[in-house]
Design a protein around this nucleic acid. Structure first.
Lengths: 169, 169, 169, 169
DNA sequence: TTTT
DNA sequence: TTTT
């Protein structure tokens, strides 16, 4: 029986345009880099300091399509999801660790047509049936932009032939 | 100006007894491994599957003392905090990435004297003044138990001579 | 287009056994009184004080069945949901206001066979299809126990013949 | 010993300008009406419906000053806090119930000079010492604008002579 | 490594 | 009305 709660709530801005890929089955997987800048009170009366964390957020299925379509670099967004830790062993035999936020819910903030997005989209991950009829099948997902900081290794880069069943979470 | 929310809420069980260390200034830093097992609905009507995530949770100051004193292997606990990503370059020149949950609040669950703890402690991170009068100054923090998966490298192992100012978050 | 987040997270204990009713369509609606006792730091260095809030939590559909079956007076539980405010005008013409927590997710805490329940049930509100085949159709829901503080007026008391369509949220 | 978690997270828009009052001790209390519009999936394949909830949110101390200064009608805001239920007996002997969200944290969303505010303020409730040196002591807080929906009765209207110690939460 |  |  399951035991536990693993919940993440983020409000931040995208550092780049989202990247959307599709599984063999046609399910969208959209990844974004989300910055959350928060203030920490100084210790011992010291001054407050800022710290920015960059989260790798992944949206699946219908939510992935919406995120890919409406989010843009700079977009402010509310994300709710869970933390997923994964490890991969590279071809050099070195283990690598990745932390992703798997989004269940997303809402654009700020409204009033910021960026190309348009304001106020809200979406929840479809409860099941995440398999659209391969709408807008991607011709060639070249990724192009190099992954940022703590980026996924090639071996993890979901390719065009990626099968749904391989998804490790 | 700060922008963003970075909030984590966990309910899970400790995989091991907590480990407490102290900074030079006498501030407690307690680390625990927290398992959250959650259920994912299967895609395409497939059966539900469980996934367990192991979180590295850190408690500082007064909260660190309480966590070190009351939590035990197996304890069920509610934790609220934020995600902190750090990278370190090992002596071999290889970069390593770490994800920690920095706890702001903790509450023991279940009660009725589970483990040595006793039930129902609740604590929030002291807003300031995290510097107890070096109560129970650690003679020798040997750590003993090897760090787990994605464990901190030696260079990050807070030693007895660790200074508060070096804390990277 | 929807705008907004309305999220509640509670950890507390039931003050009474749950009450389950069924709509005409056979959907379970389980209500519980959940106490959350939290500490407030005193102002001006005053001592900390406790405050207990009693939440009216409602579980619908499959989640309502699980809550009705496994929760008991005294059970410790994690609840996630949203706040719902409603007003009703009594037959005396007086308006009355009610605040409910509509649960999306519930998890029993503490485990190890507390109460009649058994430990560690976890459930999410079924995404759709909240209409079981009238399993265990209630013979006679007498309610018995008088509703507590800020309790629902007779006109709101879901009777056996209550229709799903009347649910005001 | 305290037991329980009582946490609320809201993202919504203000229905009116905030109202700020001050206690005898000079502590600011700012109240806002916050609308959260969320979508509910239809039962039985029915279409989705929206529901808007209006939350009474209260900010105290330094956070109350910031909220009063920067928030405006229409502002989009993130609020974190807890639910507080109170009852008052009016002079007519009728009991009235109120539900407030007591904010611990607030962050303006959307940024870029929406309203008079300016973008991106973030604030947490000061851990203690909520007693500014009576900055901008209110000459006469006339309230003026009638309280909205499920509004507070006169007996609860914090007047100029209101003492901190009377605060019921 | 926990828990059910 | 719970719990510690």
């Amino acid at each position: 029986m399951a035991r536990g709660i693993n919940k993440v709530i983020l409000v931040g801005n995208l550092g780049n345009d989202p990247e959307t890929k599709y599984t063999q089955g046609g399910m969208a997987i959209t990844s974004v880099s989300l910055a959350t800048t928060t203030v920490r009170k100084g210790r011992d009366g010291g001054e407050a300091t800022e710290k920015t964390e960059w989260h790798r957020v992944k949206f699946f299925g219908k939510l992935g399509e919406i995120a890919g379509e409406y989010l843009r670099k700079g977009s402010q967004v509310y994300v709710e999801g869970r933390i997923s830790y994964d490890e991969f062993t590279g071809q050099d035999g070195v283990k690598k660790f990745f932390t992703d936020i798997i989004a269940d819910e997303m809402q654009m903030l700020g409204g009033r047509g910021e960026g190309g997005g348009g304001g106020g989209a809200r979406a929840e991950r479809s409860g099941g049936g995440d398999r659209p009829a391969r709408q807008a099948p991607p011709q060639r997902q070249d990724a192009g932009a190099p992954r940022r900081e703590s980026a996924a290794p090639a071996s993890r880069d979901f390719g065009d032939d990626f099968a749904d069943d391989d998804i490790p979470f």
